[in-house]
Design a protein around this nucleic acid. Structure first.
Length: 257
DNA sequence: GTTGAGCGTT
């Protein structure tokens, strides 16, 4: 009764799962349990956490014993301010195994497969790996959101963020994200030439090649021109100065560019 | 120390 989220699912045969979103990252199951338990019999409260850091993801799952109570909690607790944040309570659309559930209840229970003497599962451990990877990637995207959000926020662009919220999400975007990261990682560790060179050399190698290309060309061009044009102006305004100045000849490098 | 769309664990 006090180990919520620490033990496996107690019983999902006759329980209605509610999804609580928009909760603070510091809210724990113990904090939600009394709140939800007040409106009905809560069988279990689970808050997904990151396996790397262990931080809450910002949402929790509350399982009710009866649908009527769950519905009541949804209507009553939905929109309630918890810890200074408005939480959103709604029926879970997907089950723990990514199954589709209706009204918080599983429509297609896995028991069907269990009841059958169909030997064991084809790959029981494969699920964890996929889940972990999938979650990790998703989390990365979400977490990264803050960077983009911050940047956009500074720019004052909320439109993009709003658009992202659209329920219409193309799977390509996810693939692109993954591809991009994958490519980046691969490109880095895949480069035998860059990787082969030690940090000292690798650091100097790219810099040298890049230096004479942009650094001098750009930094010298504007600076030299600005200084040259400004220098002669206050220095010598007399016609003689001009004559003299023209004598030494600025060479072709400055005349043209 | 931060974050904020979404769907879950021994």
């Amino acid at each position: 009764m006090s180990h919520f989220g620490r033990a496996g699912p107690p019983d999902i045969r006759d329980t209605y799962s509610l999804l609580v979103l928009n909760i603070t990252f510091r809210t724990t199951a113990d904090d939600l349990f009394p709140l939800f338990d007040k409106y009905g019999k809560v069988v279990d409260v689970f808050i997904p956490r990151d396996r790397r850091t262990g931080d809450s993801r910002g949402f929790a799952f509350v399982r009710y014993k009866y649908a009527d109570e769950a519905q009541k909690a949804v209507e009553k607790l939905d929109g309630r301010v918890v810890d200074g944040r408005e939480i959103m309570v709604q029926f879970a659309k997907y089950g723990p195994d990514a199954e589709r559930i209706h009204k918080g209840r599983i429509i297609e229970p896995v028991e069907k497969l269990k009841g059958r003497s169909r030997s064991r599962s084809p790959r029981p451990s494969s699920r964890y790996r996929d889940d972990y990877r999938d979650k990790d990637y998703k989390r990365r995207n979400r977490s990264r959101s803050r960077d983009r959000s911050d940047y956009e926020r500074h720019r004052g662009r909320d439109r993009d963020r709003y658009r992202s919220r659209s329920r219409s999400r193309s799977p390509d975007s996810r693939r692109e994200r993954r591809r991009g990261r994958y490519d980046d990682d691969k490109g880095r560790s895949r480069s035998p030439i860059r990787s082969a060179s030690p940090p000292a050399r690798g650091s100097v190698s790219p810099r040298r090649s890049l230096s004479p290309h942009k650094s001098p060309s750009r930094s010298r061009s504007p600076v030299a021109r600005a200084e040259k044009e400004r220098s002669p102006t206050p220095k010598s305004v007399s016609p003689r100065g001009r004559s003299d100045s023209r004598s030494p000849s600025p060479q072709r490098s400055d005349a043209d560019e």
